[in-house]
């Protein structure tokens, strides 16, 4: 598989956060492992995933939350369906 861009990984991460929202809290490492599994370890590494998470957070599409540990989740307005 060819190496995905940071944006593509961020999009895939966002889809995962959205799909699991309300069912499972995801940590940064959960997203990283999921992306390595999805794209393959020859195409995606921890460094690329770190950049993708940075983009996800800085764009405001996701935020950090704290529920007995730090997780990555959807912002409150999306949380309420708005």
């Amino acid at each position: 598989m060819s190496q995905p861009t940071v944006e593509e990984v961020a999009d895939a991460m966002y889809d995962l956060v959205k799909a699991t929202h309300g069912k499972k809290n995801l940590k940064a490492m959960d997203l990283t492992k999921a992306m390595i599994e999805k794209f393959g370890d020859d195409a995606v590494d921890k460094k690329l995933c770190k950049l993708a998470i940075r983009q996800l957070i800085d764009s405001g599409r996701c935020i950090y939350s704290y529920f007995g540990g730090s997780f990555i989740t959807l912002p409150p307005d999306e949380d309420s369906g708005g």
Binding site: D58, I63, Y64, Y66, T73
Partner: peptide, 17 residues
């Protein structure tokens, strides 16, 4: 109660809800 969704843009630490 503590925790939740509060913070400042781009940061995941530094503010405890």
């Amino acid at each position: 109660k503590h925790g939740g969704l509060v913070g400042v843009m781009g940061y995941g630490g530094g503010v405890i809800g």
